[in-house]
Design a protein around this nucleic acid. Sequence first.
DNA 1: CCATTAAATTCAA
DNA 2: TTGAATTTAATGG
Length: 249
Amino acid sequence: MSLNTSHSKLRKKALTDVSCEACTNENCLINRSLQSISNTEFAKNKSTLKCKKGQQFIMEGAPVNGLFFILKGTVKVFRTGINGREQIVRFAKEGEIIGHRGFGTEEYYSIGAIALQESVLCYFSKDDLQDALLENPKFAYDLMLFYANELNRSENKVKSISQMTVRERVIDTLLYLHRKFGDINGFLSLPLSRKEYADYAGTTEEQVIRIFSALKKEKLISAKGKKIAVSNIQLLKSEISEHNYFLDA
DNA sequence: CCATTAAATTCAA
DNA sequence: TTGAATTTAATGG
């Protein structure tokens, strides 16, 4: 367990050591394919970025030079809509990739990203990533699976926005968050403002608040502050599945 | 959509 | 750890 040489340089870095070799994140694509990646330019050249809660690290319209992976924390990815309204595209957690749509040909980000908690991000340049993908089929394959999954989710989202009622979309959002982030003794483990629920579900804050109130009366959820408990997941699911037969990750 | 009040979070002493 | 200051939730117009 002691790779620790005692160079003072390393000791100083101990708190911020986020090299791929030291990474314990099982969800990270890079970590999973690491055997063949360590010691490449790719792993050496990566840089990391610490974000405080609420800090934006991708600006809409900024040039794309690389990709971010989340080492720690959670992030929301959004796009600014017609009259300044924010549309949250997805929530991302540890191990996930941000900014991947810009990877191939896009020159500018079409999305922005903000940390929802203290987060640490790994940043890889386009070129290094490209080399790694060309040399490593497993890595490329895993990344492809990620893209496929994102595409699936994105298509489902089109459907939900265009065909589901507001109430259904809010419920869908709750189920999505529960699937993805789980709960801590009953409460969704990701604290979001009502505005953020609205921005994901494609409604307004007031609508979300009113639907939450209704759901509370029906004993389908309960809430204290930002902590939402989904007490009756089965009932919520069944309300959705009348119009939707999908289950995505 | 806005205004009001209640409630919850943050922050700094 | 507390409570004052700030932000967020909830409701009704």
